[in-house]
Design a protein around this nucleic acid. Structure first.
Length: 286
DNA sequence: GTCGCTAGCAACCCCGGACT
DNA sequence: AGTCCGGGGTTGCTAGCGAC
């Protein structure tokens, strides 16, 4: 059995990058409050419904759905649910050697404890997964920390996306970034929404920018890019049409054949036959 | 007025099943 | 391997908003 000092020394020598203390979900009653109190770790609350206020160092923040607040270690804070529309929130308490660094990347610190996160669906899914993971199961702790990394990465990406917006890139830069993304991901199941999110633009605006610069919609560009890649594979390899369709991002070979015929005018198998005829004629000439 | 962006809705496309 | 078809999800268009 360890003494208290031995235990504390053991903990000190085994500090991890990130460590979850607690996480949960709460539908608060009207005027439900906590504090004034102090904690020895970081604690993030993310509001998914209702309103409330958060107080620290004499400042009061009125918060509502889609917003969150950070409580830092060793600071006295107080928070209270609204008297009419009490908030419902997720919370996650954590610490670790890298905690402060990651929070700073997410633009969160003692002096900047508030954040807005519009796409609450993905954040909620992540937090639900975190809560649903049993800490006593084999690998459960690692899974929960994994979800904490994902949660913090979402907050960091949001900051990154807003920086990109502030920089006011040109339309050409947006299109170049989109094309780069398509070139790297055409073989995966990507959508224009995902593409727009990656660039930090609204889906509709991305379409407008594409039309403006290339006179073609992003969807059409993606389809043509995939079909051109596919026709190269049909011409230069012996892979089956099914393998080629999956290689260019179409899980459904039938859908691929339809699109291919629409773009090229012939079905993939006919396209290969055409290549073979050309090849045979060339051999005859030689 | 221009630019950057969003919301809403109609149109389109893709997927999956049935079939040849 | 390809066609046809129906349903649901995705996309593109456009009006409009806010900032400059």
């Amino acid at each position: 059995m360890k003494t208290m000092n031995e235990y504390l020394e053991f903990k000190l020598n085994h500090l991890t990058d990130l460590d979850i203390y607690q996480c949960g979900f709460e539908e608060c009653n009207k005027n439900h409050s906590y504090g004034p109190a102090m904690r020895d770790h970081y604690l993030i609350h993310y509001i998914v419904k209702g309103k409330g206020n958060f107080e620290r160092k004499g400042e009061t923040y009125n918060l509502s759905e889609g917003q969150g607040f950070l409580i830092c270690p060793n600071e006295i804070t107080y928070y209270k649910a609204d008297s009419e529309e009490p908030w419902t929130y997720y919370w996650v308490g954590f610490n670790g050697v890298k905690a402060k660094e990651y929070l700073l990347k997410a633009n969160l610190a003692e002096e900047k404890p508030i954040f807005d996160y519009v796409n609450s669906g993905e954040l909620q899914e992540c937090l639900n997964n975190m809560i649903g993971t049993k800490s006593m199961s084999a690998g459960g702790d690692i899974q929960r920390v994994g979800y904490l990394y994902v949660f913090l990465s979402y907050l960091m990406e949001m900051v990154d996306a807003s920086k990109k917006r502030i920089r006011n890139k040109t339309k050409e830069e947006y299109v170049a970034k989109a094309i780069e993304y398509i070139e790297k991901n055409y073989s995966r199941n990507i959508s224009i929404s995902k593409l727009a999110y990656y660039i930090g633009l609204d889906r509709s605006y991305l379409t407008f920018v594409f039309k403006d610069v290339l006179n073609i919609s992003p969807k059409r560009f993606l389809i043509e890019y995939r079909i051109n890649k596919a026709s190269e594979l049909i011409k230069n390899t012996e892979f089956s049409i099914g393998d080629i369709s999956r290689s260019v991002g179409y899980d459904d070979q039938l859908a691929f054949s339809k699109v291919f015929k629409k773009i090229k005018g012939v079905a993939p198998s006919e396209y290969r036959k055409t290549r073979e005829i050309i090849f045979l004629n060339l051999r005859k000439e030689i």
